Simulated scan of single mutants.
Amino acid sequence: MFRKKMLVLALFSIYFLSIEAVRNESFPALLAFGDSMVDTGNNNYLLTLMKGNYWPYGWNFDSKIPTGRFGNGRVFSDVVAEGLGIKRIVPAYRKLYIAPSDLKTGVSFASGGAGVDPVTSKLLRVLSPADQVKDFKGYKRKLKGVVGRSKAKKIVANSVILVSEGNNDIGITYAIHDAGMRLMTPKVYTSKLVGWNKKFIKDLYDHGARKFAVMGVIPLGCLPMSRLIFGGFFVWCNFLANTISEDYNKKLKSGIKSWRGASDFRGARFVYVDMYNSLMDVINNHRKYGFTHEKNGCCCMLTAIVPCSNPDKYVFYDFAHPSEKAYKTIAKKLVEDIKTGLA
């Protein structure tokens, strides 16, 4: 009887270990593209004012020093990679040196301030979609040198491609820069954004990417900056900005459904990552999640010249970027959505 029990226990152990191995093998790496939600320091190497490599950014990061991430610690790409069981920190591709182990498990090509509108990245002098695709091609060459052509192709095809676009296009280019210059209504603009995003994703697909986790925009009208400027000094969210954000997200989600199984995306998988409702839930129910401040940022604003003492109490770290705790809070469900949608 004892031997039978030990045999059953051993078989169960082998089964669960094999399941875990398959799970990890299904997502060998995370490759992040887009804006500051997933940029882990690429802007450090650009001639741009859009940088997060100075204090008080990085206040709660492992090394206690600024890394170029726009927040007090890790950003969404880091948190998702950890949730998927890949690794805890996703390095920026433009770092001077990337270890072979990091090439095999993923990097970030994103750039704070970037967008898919052709105007956005030029306006802020950051990496455009074309620049990020070019870096992606360079990454593939380096990866091939480490693991060989066949395995490199497999890693890219099975990696989670995390894409965050639209936040700067709507929040900066359309709201501030355009000011009607291109005579586009919000609905026309959001439709164009989805088209530009599709083109960007198609470029990544043409270079071997197959598993896409496409992030919607966050509630841009509830950012501390939006509340301060347009919403009545932190009393209300900016209704118009949120309406445009929701319209874009609705069209993006619908577009993703239509891309599945389309001839130009044959073999690709897509999942929509609902950043808007996830973060709005935290904002509306902030005390439930352990936050005491949902309207003002912890630092880097006229209303927060002296950084707060505990960023974990703030939904937003600065004028526009969630705190690490906020990212970790919303990531719990979103990581499961990614696993289910792309596994």
Rank of each mutant, 00 (worst) to 15 (best):
G180A: 00
D169Q: 00
V282A: 08
G290D: 04
L204D: 02
S18M: 14
V79G: 06
R266T: 11
L334A: 11
A81R: 02
F27W: 11
Y45E: 02
V335T: 10
K151G: 00
S111A: 15
Y289G: 12
S263Y: 10
P66N: 01
R287Q: 15
V214N: 01
K328M: 14
D62L: 13
P307M: 00
A209N: 00
I172L: 08
K153Y: 04
V214D: 04
Q132C: 12
I244A: 09
F61K: 06
F239C: 10
K153P: 07
A29S: 14
A32M: 05
F316W: 05
A213Y: 09
A32G: 08
A304C: 01
T292D: 10
G148L: 02
K192E: 05
V147T: 04
F291A: 07
V133L: 15
Y54G: 09
K140I: 11
A114Y: 04
A175H: 13
V90Q: 04
W55Q: 10
Y205P: 05
E246T: 08
K4Y: 10
L193V: 00
S13E: 05
K142P: 13
T190F: 04
L96W: 11
V160R: 03
V273T: 04
L143W: 03
K142W: 12
F27I: 12
G195S: 15
I86G: 03
V8W: 02
V79E: 06
V90F: 03
A179T: 09
Y174T: 02
K142F: 11
G85N: 01
C298E: 08
N53L: 12
D117V: 00
H286Y: 15
R149P: 07
W55L: 09
V22A: 15
P311N: 15
R182H: 15
S191V: 08
V133D: 13
K328D: 13
V126G: 12
K339H: 08
F234L: 15
R287P: 06
A268E: 04
A21I: 05
C299Q: 08
Y15I: 12
I305K: 09
F234R: 08
E336R: 11
S164A: 15
Y45T: 03
F27D: 14
E294I: 00
A343Y: 06
A10K: 01
Y272E: 04
K95S: 14
D337H: 12
D203E: 14
K134E: 14
L342Q: 08
V315E: 10
R69P: 07
S254Q: 05
K95R: 13
P311E: 13
Y248N: 11
Y276S: 10
V133E: 13
V156S: 11
T48Y: 07
S226E: 03
V217T: 15
D178Q: 02
F70I: 14
